[in-house]
Amino acid sequence: MLIPRDYLFAFYLDLKPFSYVFYSVSVAHLAFVIALNLAFKNIIFIGQDLAFNDEGDSHPKDYKHTPKYESSNYKGLKALAYGGKTQAKTQEAWVYFKQVLEQMINEAKCYGIEVYNATEGGLRIEGSIEKPFSLCIKELLKDTKKSYLPLSVLSFAKQSEFLLKAFVKIIKSIKNCKKFVDKISQKIKCIEQSHLDLEQTKKIIKDLECLKQELFNFKDLLELLQPSSFQLELSLAKISVINVKNEEELLRKNLLFIEEFIEYFRLVKGLLSLQRQSFLKHICALENELIKRGFENKILKIKDNIC
């Protein structure tokens, strides 16, 4: 299964027999990972120049967003050029792309894989063998008669098994989204209606921490929660270092904690609602496919048991 990066919801679906291919810093990186997974012993890169040309263009003349699409967006840098004798103009993102490629090439060498850079321009990608494409073809493709293992299509029963498995997991996630949207709404309402003294704020902070941890126990929600939760931790860290001298100041500090938590849970509530709506909209295609395969009664049973 090709996914842009290691998305947690893809792992939640747990389609283990297919495994996952990810590492898409760029299309080239993902293509490289696919080639590694296919166990090729020689991999040729071409077109990975990662540099501006002499006219300052970032893309070819026929590029749909104009050849200077990225020329004015980044501060210019210089790095060692292809051939190792001159410097080429580049920018931060391309240098990062190059560094990731170099790391991947070094790891590939541990498995006896040779990587060739046939771009004949742009930046030098350390660890790759610089060689013109024509020579790569001449030297590496001497024997064009290769045997390949035939790929077999999954049986109808196995396909249906995986479709049903994914359907069950998504239905469970839809239920979890609804469960926590209701739970968060109830918790915020209860806090807003309370008269908060020092002891109550301590209890509420503890309850909010428990609710946050409860959310993180559900693997289907982790991907959605991580960015906002990281921001919450940063905000709470700023409050936690406030020095208090008496109970009145401690109460104000606790109220700041609670305000941050409420803002976080309101954001989470909105995200969960959007995720639920998206799942409800897009699960229709999966449900229709299962109905075509004769699993209408099975679908109804699944919905009854989960929902």
Rank of each mutant, 00 (worst) to 15 (best):
L77C: 09
S71K: 07
K89T: 07
W94Q: 02
L77E: 15
L80E: 07
Y74E: 14
L77R: 13
I129M: 05
S134A: 12
Y111Q: 13
I137A: 12
G127Y: 03
I129N: 09
E102S: 01
I129F: 01
E114M: 07
H65Y: 13
A81F: 05
Q87C: 03
Q87K: 14
F97V: 02
V115M: 05
G84S: 07
Y116L: 10
T90L: 02
T66G: 13
Q91S: 08
I113F: 01
A88F: 04
S71C: 06
A118I: 06
P67N: 15
A108C: 11
A93D: 11
I113H: 00
S134H: 01
T119W: 05
P132Q: 06
Y69W: 14
E120W: 09
Y111V: 01
Y96A: 06
Q103Y: 15
C110F: 09
Y69S: 12
I137K: 12
T119V: 06
A81L: 09
P132D: 04
F133Y: 12
A93S: 08
C110S: 14
W94R: 04
Y74P: 09
Q91N: 09
T86N: 09
G83M: 10
E70K: 10
P67V: 06
T119K: 02
V100S: 03
G84R: 11
G122I: 05
F97S: 01
F97Q: 05
K138H: 11
S71N: 09
E114A: 10
C110R: 15
V95Q: 09
S134G: 01
K109A: 08
F97C: 02
Y111W: 14
E114F: 11
K85W: 11
C110A: 14
K131D: 02
A81T: 06
K98W: 00
Y111E: 15
G83R: 10
C136R: 03
S72V: 11
A81V: 07
F133T: 00
K78T: 13
T86I: 05
K75E: 15
L123N: 07
A81C: 11
K109W: 10
E126K: 09
Q99A: 08
E120F: 13
K98C: 03
E130M: 05
E102T: 00
F97E: 02
S134I: 13
A93T: 10
K68A: 02
A79K: 12
Q103M: 12
I137G: 02
I105W: 01
R124G: 02
E126P: 00
S72R: 13
T90M: 05
V100Y: 01
E102F: 04
W94F: 12
E102D: 04
C136G: 03
